[in-house]
Amino acid sequence: MTITCILTDDQPLTLLELANACQVEPAWIAERIMAGLVITPIPARLDGALFGSRAIERTRQLLRIENDFDANPELAALVVDMMEQLTMLRRQIRQDHPVIDIL
């Protein structure tokens, strides 16, 4: 049987659904949204806010970094920012031509 998937950016998640997806309490996410660490929801208030793919990924990364390294939320967010940059640069390198060393 083939199962049809729904793109979370076409049908975004509520705060409770995002919390379920990341296995945290909604308050944990709300606290980080208010501090500007997760992602700005649409609309930019928590009541009725909706979240897409980037919010899921970012919330899970924040959670991992905070848990694995006992990091405070601001530090974890900084690490996640840098990881996003790193991913983008790695993709760029992957496509660029190999460097040839000439003596």
Binding site: I3, C5, I6, L7, T8, D9, Q11, L13, G52, S53, R54, I56, E57, R91
Partner: peptide
Amino acid sequence: PAGITEGQHLRV
């Protein structure tokens, strides 16, 4: 579905 981008999430 068509139109997916890297890092997007599909919900089953």
